[in-house]
Nucleic acid binder design. Structure first.
Lengths: 270, 270
DNA sequence: GCAAATTTGTTCGTATGTATT
DNA sequence: CAATACATACGAACAAATTTG
């Protein structure tokens, strides 16, 4: 035979899953039962299951069994919002959760989703190369770091860290180094105190494997099968100087993004 | 033991790789040598290597050995170009490869990259649900499909398929169903023949596992460890009607994207 | 071009550990 | 505590791919 046995077994199970014979959440037969069914050894059955696991079709739980994965209802974020729009507070103002926070559910009803985020964890850090480059400060300069964990419907959704030049505090924006939310929104606060208006931003989108902290927070496997979007948003003020750098990490299994260029007609998203 | 042995071996090798002791492209010791070195069985060593493989740190080649992966120099695509800009022909006009086609090499020199694409493979297809929704035609209606394979520096870079409503051909744009390039660019051609101008577009960005065809074309593993961006670009004309849907697939290991909103100062990308 | 040596890939059997019910 | 189910680990044999002589 052309293909190894474990791949044939995997293929057979994959067809059962994709045809709907095995439904999401349903338990597969145990390794012993599959061993007898396919006339292979238990190790070979385990190789087949491991292959399906890497493909993201099934997940195994020790002491319980192997289950067909449930797909997560994706959340869609629009990245091209009005850069001057700061209404809606911190959650909305940072990474573009403007507009409708609702979603077409399976039943066809509109499902309202709820946001929750932790208060910012504030630190003074030395700028890494990428931070220094984006904020146009010298390498190793101290910067303000404000870190949040963000949830939707109590599902871990994203990890976000914003970096500000240290000079902002001395020039009249002391609340940047206070832990806790800035109720009016950080962008409006900088406008009120320093006269800095966010008029533009650039997003840089990459995908990489999650680190251990991210994997634990998002509840994704630690082996990098499921990647994370890492979006670097560099915001600029009216003089063209960098205002802040916001780094947000989203797991790719539950996030999608929209970009609008020009007068795009308003309508339902795909 | 807290951690299983294969994870400890993997961790030891990972530190050697990340510390630079094992350099990209370098061959690891053979499974037999590692077995003797760590005092484990060959199968346990293989489990460790498989873990590193899933993490994307090493790759094994049958008959040769296990090697530290070389990172691919990423290509950066700007998604927010002027929607009316159609200069540069087909390559540039479809998915935003406007501007500088150059890149900072390791040595610090500017390295010019070369594009190549196959002539379009043209087909008449029935619209799937997503195509019908985006083009605002009835489900099952016939549409024109133009498919291309695209390379940069002879590396497979992306797979792109554009869909047009069938009506465009009857209304005076017959070249859409001819195989081969439209030299002036498809957007300009539609403007010249039908008076349709592309004034806006919406990009919808997702990440998923590659299918078999994509994995073979891009040379990535078939097990889904390395995902692909799938970008749906719906373009609109001056009346707000959909002009075409372009679906482009990029492997995540060699592609990054930039979005500019507002007057972003021109400067070097990260 | 072929044969041998090297290296990873697949499969089996067995035993024991760990998590959950 | 006992039963069940997956996780780890060992040893062995042969197959397949590649390089070397």
């Amino acid at each position: 035979m052309a293909n190894p046995m474990y791949r044939q077994i995997a293929e057979d199970l994959r067809e059962q899953i994709e045809s709907g014979l095995l439904k999401p959440g349903q338990q597969l037969r145990t390794e012993i039962e599959l061993r007898d069914h396919y006339g292979a050894s238990r190790n070979t059955v385990r190789d087949a299951i491991k292959w399906l696991t890497t493909l993201g079709l099934v997940e195994t739980r020790p002491g319980q069994g192997t289950f067909v994965v449930r797909k997560i209802e994706p959340y869609v974020t629009t990245l091209t919002a009005d850069p001057k729009n700061t209404a809606g507070g911190d959650i909305a103002d940072i990474i573009g959760l403007y507009g409708e926070i609702s979603d077409e559910a399976n039943s066809g009803e509109k499902k309202k989703r709820t946001f929750f985020k932790t208060p910012p964890q504030v630190e003074i850090q030395k700028a890494t190369e990428i931070i220094a480059t984006q904020l146009q400060v010298a390498d190793g300069t101290q910067v303000i770091s404000r870190h949040e964990r963000r949830y939707i419907d109590s599902t871990p959704w994203s990890l976000q860290t914003s970096f500000y030049p240290m000079g902002f505090v001395l020039k009249g924006a002391p609340r940047l180094i206070e832990a806790g939310d800035i109720e009016v929104g950080a962008v409006k606060y900088l406008g009120d105190t320093l006269g800095l208006r966010q008029v533009a931003y650039r997003d840089w989108i990459t995908v990489r494997a999650p680190d251990l902290t991210e994997a634990l927070f998002f509840g994704v496997p630690q082996d990098g099968r499921i990647g994370v979007f890492e979006i670097f948003r560099t915001a600029f003020d009216q003089t063209g100087a960098p205002l802040r750098l916001t780094v947000t990490v989203f797991p790719t299994d539950r996030n999608q993004f929209i970009i609008n260029v020009g007068p795009v007609p308003a309508e339902s998203q795909p």
